[in-house]
Amino acid sequence: MGSGTGIGRVRGLGSAKHGAMHWWRQRVTAVGNLLLATWFVVSLFRLPSLDHATVVGWIGSPLVAVPLVLLTISVFYHLRLGLQVVMEDYVHEEGGKVFFILLLNFYAIGGAALAIFSILKIAFGGVPA
């Protein structure tokens, strides 16, 4: 791997050696989102109502709770990757860039944790008689 010219560094995929990983994971989570979000939206439309009892009863099923957890992981991972690129492109000042990407990571991980804990709390809450 060259270290002098720009092209030499690009050929070596940069200092971290996995230059294409971010791009690839963006695509993997995009396909995940496509399948899981379609399932999610169609399922919501098929519910007789969206009141508390109906929603909690629906999420309580393992066949709903598990895809809902997977949807949360896929969506929040995808948005973390996507917004990181947006920040890298538009926030030019180094300190601000670090700050916003830090904030983004806290939001993505914190938000996903809250959502997943809530799904599991409902799902583990009990088995309907």
């Binding site: 009141d51 508390h52 009892a53 929603v55 909690v56 999420i59 949360t72 969506v75 929040f76 948005l79 996507g82 917004l83 947006v86 939001y107 938000g111 809250l114 959502a115 804990f117 809530s118 799904i119 709390k121 409902i122």
Partner: peptide
Amino acid sequence: TGVGMAIVAGLGFIWWLVAAAMGAEAYD
């Protein structure tokens, strides 16, 4: 649309699930 959904739909999704897990009153 990506940034918009990441913030608005993301927060809405979290709020929906947390409220559902907290109980009927929070969900209302």
